[in-house]
């Protein structure tokens, strides 16, 4: 499978001299679900902001379907790469929920009928269908966060970047975000998530990239990244494997980063023992 996003030897230095990325190489095939994790300041957000042109590499290059993003306006890249920011209050401005969600689709020139369809589909996906005419500021934080997510889903971009989508969400909200990630992948869209929630990462993504000090230190499936051999590397960037992974190691059934994998491994051992 050819890579949809290619990061070639990218380094990035902020104007204040902070070295945020150092020689990062990464290939993300179309339709993949990939999580980028690491401690604060490890370069996760800086990296994904290169994908839609908000940041440009100091050295190296980013290719989207073979197209070098250098010189391409963010407004143009926005129709290919949607980015849901961590803080919804940095983007909400409209007086009604549906107008907020329609903002992105209108900017990228979607037809009016399609905009309406996209808005209601996105609101349904995040569970805000009944709030279409509500003022966004009358929603609680977790719902404003879902609104911000809907405003990006409605743009129907082939690549969706989610920056800490589960922050502030209760279990129901996390489950909803997990379903959104799964549904996006089912429609062939590439989903890239940044998260500190290792359980969400293990449950929702097929590949995990771990960053530390602007470099990639681990890259593999959740079972590989959360396996016992990787724990020291995870600890070096202040991450802990999800609880099922730790239980699996304690129980001696191998790497089991999700509840389902843990239950399956324990069942197999029981069957084998009997």
């Amino acid at each position: 499978m050819t890579a949809e996003i290619v990061v070639e030897n990218v380094s990035f230095v902020y104007p204040d001299g902070t070295h945020a990325l150092a020689d990062v190489d990464l290939q993300i095939p179309r339709g993949h679900r990939i999580a980028i994790v690491g401690q604060n300041g490890s370069g996760k957000s800086t990296l994904v902001r290169h994908f839609n042109g908000l940041l440009r590499p100091t050295t190296g290059r980013i290719l989207l379907d073979g197209l070098d993003t250098v010189g391409v306006h963010v407004a143009h890249l926005a129709s290919r790469v949607g980015l849901a920011f961590q803080n919804p209050d940095r983007q909400i401005f409209a007086g009604r929920v549906k107008a907020e969600v329609a903002f992105g689709p209108r900017n990228i020139g979607m037809a009016q009928v399609e905009v309406e369809q996209a808005v209601y589909a996105a609101l349904e996906a995040v569970g805000l269908t009944g709030q279409a005419d509500t003022n966004p500021y009358d929603l609680g934080y977790s719902r404003r966060k879902l609104l911000a997510l809907a405003s990006v889903l409605a743009m129907r971009t082939p690549i969706v970047l989610l920056d800490e989508p589960t922050t502030g969400q209760d279990a129901r909200g996390v489950a909803r975000v997990q379903k959104i990630v799964s549904d996006l992948a089912d429609t062939g869209r590439t989903v890239i998530g940044i998260s500190h929630d290792m359980r969400f990462v293990a449950e929702s993504f097929e590949r995990v990239v771990v960053m530390r000090a602007g470099r990639i230190i681990l890259d593999g499936t959740p079972s590989e990244v959360f396996a016992r051999e990787s724990w020291d590397a995870l600890a070096s960037t202040y991450l802990e494997p999800p609880l099922p992974a730790r239980i699996g190691v304690r129980a001696g059934v191998g790497s089991t980063p999700t509840d389902a994998l843990l239950v399956e491994a324990l069942s197999q051992r029981k069957v084998a023992a009997s």
Binding site: H73, A75, A78, V81, G82, F93, A94
Partner: peptide
């Protein structure tokens, strides 16, 4: 900008972006 707001194009386009930038 990530939602397609053009802040670098023609002047009338940039004027259109005042509310989305000022309100938040």
């Amino acid at each position: 900008r990530a939602r397609g707001l053009d802040t670098e194009g023609a002047r009338w386009r940039r004027v259109r972006g005042v509310v989305p930038l000022a309100a938040p």
